[in-house]
């Protein structure tokens, strides 16, 4: 399964990517929306794990832009933001909405669930 991780916290996204690779996933990551869009142009991903709040472009805006490039990808929002407003928006727009810090087993079960549901 191929994943794209997008989060402006470089240390977070690189380490999470490394841990998912250890568990057998193919993972690319980006810390900027523009880089995420570039990766999506070049590669096909099963699922995108997206931060809700990023500099310049919100996770919701980026999801919309990614959908224009690759309409069939699934999404999980993974965010430090815990407001009710974000939860409502995030859970409506993605398969799952998870709050940092997240247990990797839970993240993986949600990833599998999202992709299995899709298939």
């Amino acid at each position: 399964m191929r994943l794209l991780l997008v989060d402006d916290e470089n240390e977070f996204v690189t380490t999470l990517a490394e841990r998912l690779v250890i568990r057998g996933f193919e993972v690319d990551y980006a810390t900027k929306a523009v880089d995420a869009l570039d990766l999506a142009e070049k590669n096909r991903y099963d699922l995108v794990v997206l931060d809700m709040k990023m500099p310049g472009t919100s996770g919701l805006e980026l999801k919309y832009m990614l959908e224009q490039i690759r309409p069939n990808m699934k999404y999980i929002f993974l965010t430090g933001h815990g407001s009710e407003e974000d939860y409502v928006a995030g859970s409506q727009q993605a398969t799952h909405y998870l709050v940092k810090p997240v247990n990797i087993s839970i993240l993986i079960s949600k990833i599998n669930e999202a992709v299995d549901t899709h298939e």
């Binding site: 916290e9 240390e11 977070f12 380490t15 999470l16 490394e18 841990r19 250890i22 709040k53 430090g80 933001h81 815990g82 407001s83 709050v99 940092k100 810090p101 997240v102 990797i104």
Partner: peptide, 23 residues
């Protein structure tokens, strides 16, 4: 809210690095 978000990010990085050490 801004501070709690920042702290959540710090915790997330610590969480992933602790997890990586376990791995």
């Amino acid at each position: 809210a801004s501070i709690s978000h920042e702290i959540k990010n710090v915790l997330a990085i610590i969480n992933e690095n602790a997890g990586l050490l376990e791995d």
